[in-house]
Design a protein around this nucleic acid. Structure first.
Lengths: 337, 337
DNA sequence: TTGAATTGTACAAACGTTTGCGCATTTAAA
DNA sequence: TTTAAATGCGCAAACGTTTGTACAATTCAA
């Protein structure tokens, strides 16, 4: 790498001191009454020399890195990619930059990433925690780092979060299936210990119980395509096959689709399907999938709002909010009444 | 934020000098013959105090940031999200971290991001350039920053790149349509000035001309869903409607699907469709889409290999490689012979 | 003419690391 | 014993910024 130009070079070139250069380049010229001609000279020299400020040096001095971190379980999941894209764009408006980490649904990687990010003096963290351990995250929060969990979070832990009302989403999805005459409903879940998953399962169960149905299956243990695939395969090995499947997220739904296709089971003729999470492609599937859409954009925006109110205003409240999901009715649920 | 623990605190606590602390914590204990007990004490103290090294300070001294940057046009596009995910994971293996930028298909944002990243002392850059200006990227390359373009790149510019053989992909896709009896083929393109787009168009045209067909339409000007949608709508306003559409990327294909669905035009009965770019969802569409799949994983790996050979071995060759795409034949092309 | 106020600028320390060099102290060899 | 080698560690400078303070020169009022 060619040696970089620094403010000292500019000082030399203009015959002014680095102090003056720094002040002009930081827009503090007026405040420190730097002469107009000096300002001109400095700005011109900076342009000519292609000066690029060294954030790290500045950060070392000021303690401000203008950086926040986002950790998601998998950028490959369009749901999280969407969040990342949104957050990235929103954060830029605050003059900050986002470092995106991908924990690959692996808590150990998550921890390592977190340390690396802390080493980089992040001023805030938005995280979709990928496991059920929360201590390492709470620890950072206690240290004073502004932290917001999104999508996934921890109940009964004093950490701010913004997520979807998963219970309600699952409850209404199940209700919808019930209202269409389904009784034998299978629910394919993700990571069991995760709060959203627990709440979704609970919403499902409550709706079932309210309908007086106690004979349902809840299977699966992982937010993966593979899990959706295998569990769907298994479901149709049983003597009593479900008339409807409730997939607890988009990747599981994909596995589901794959298995159903292989088995030549038609949606919604042979089985009805409803899933958590939306995606543009869902509309173009063989059968457009009815889904529980999470307000991704709102979640991102609110999370950032909270984060920056912690960063800038030193807000101390532990905000915990759940946004209402929205059911998008398409064609994957058959009325069997 | 709570005041952070630094090596000085450890030095104080252990009664050793910061020099010794630094050396032990950097694994240079043996090299500098630090006593075993001292090493123990230091490591223990670091753990007890929850020491987190300050990368920025270290970087300031050493010039190594252990950071590379990735800029993609849109994380929302699953194709780029996949690349980002892959690169993120691969880079970690080298002990580096990736800062991901999203240019939102906007060259001005790309430039701004680039500056911000340079301010953060990145040691390398992998970029999917979103426009047809290459000077700002070449400039960084000339400055000595290891740069690799992926997916999109510039012809006749001395910048390393790893991409797909777009010409071949488009040529064989077109050939495939022709072989199935299609004559009236419409091609919906993306950003016209972009190299991959140009090559795809060229592959399309060459195949058509070879078949003796000169009457074809090439429409569109943008890698957006909207573009695919509008152009498809327009195509079917004409008196002579195409029997096949060749979509030049996945987002365009989505717009295409949307328009076809609205117009109740069936694939492949009414029109055949083939698209560049693969995605898991493609298999589950109403009609699984035949596509030209790019070797995303290989592109990412090779790019990183090149990048680190520049970073570590000061490799100077301008590597420019094109990988063969793979046609995945599904059900969206009808044989009309 | 004097003194105060204003204007324009610079010194030097600090941020948390890393590292070339050098200095004790101990051990081993003669 | 004396001397050389080996062992263990610390000093202080440097990386590129920012900023509290200070100081000189000019302008202005009296």
């Amino acid at each position: 790498m060619a040696p970089k130009v620094n403010i000292n070079d500019i000082a030399l070139k203009t015959g002014l001191s680095i102090t003056t250069v720094s002040r002009v380049l930081n827009g503090k010229a007026e405040q420190y009454r730097i002469g107009k001609k000096s300002q001109q000279k400095i700005k011109e020299a900076a342009r000519e020399l292609n000066y690029i400020p060294n954030q790290y040096a500045a950060n070392l001095r000021t303690g401000k890195s203008n950086t926040i971190a986002l950790i998601v379980p998998s950028l490959n999941n369009p749901f999280f990619a969407g969040i990342a894209s949104k957050i990235n764009a929103e954060v830029r408006k605050f003059g900050y930059i986002t470092i995106i980490g991908d924990s690959d649904e692996n808590q150990e990687i998550e921890k390592i990433e977190l340390l690396q990010l802390m080493s980089r003096n992040i001023e805030g963290l938005i995280i979709v925690p990928c496991g059920n351990e929360w201590e390492h995250i709470k620890h950072l929060h206690d240290l004073g780092l502004p932290v917001i969990c999104i999508d996934r979070y921890f109940e009964n832990v004093d950490l701010p979060y913004v997520s979807t009302d998963n219970y309600e989403g699952a409850y209404s999805a199940t209700k919808y299936l019930l209202d269409h005459g389904h009784v034998s409903i299978a629910c394919i879940q993700g990571v069991q210990a995760a709060t959203p998953n627990k709440l979704r399962v609970q919403g499902f169960e409550d709706a079932m119980k309210e309908a007086g149905i106690t004979d349902y299956s809840i299977v699966g243990d992982d937010y993966s395509v593979q899990n959706g695939y295998l569990e769907t395969k298994l479901l149709f090995q049983h003597k009593t096959k479900p008339t409807a499947i409730f997939s607890l997220n988009n990747t599981i739904a994909m596995g589901c689709l794959k298995a159903l296709k292989e088995e030549k089971i038609k949606i919604p003729e042979d089985v009805s399907l409803i899933t958590f999470d939306d995606h543009p492609y869902l509309d173009f599937l063989a059968t457009p999938l009815t889904c529980i859409a999470q307000p991704v954009s709102d979640i991102s925006k609110i999370a950032i709002k909270f984060l920056f109110s912690r960063i800038n205003n030193n807000e101390k409240n532990i905000n915990q909010v759940l946004l209402k999901p929205k059911m998008k009715i398409k064609e994957s649920v058959r009325n069997i009444l």
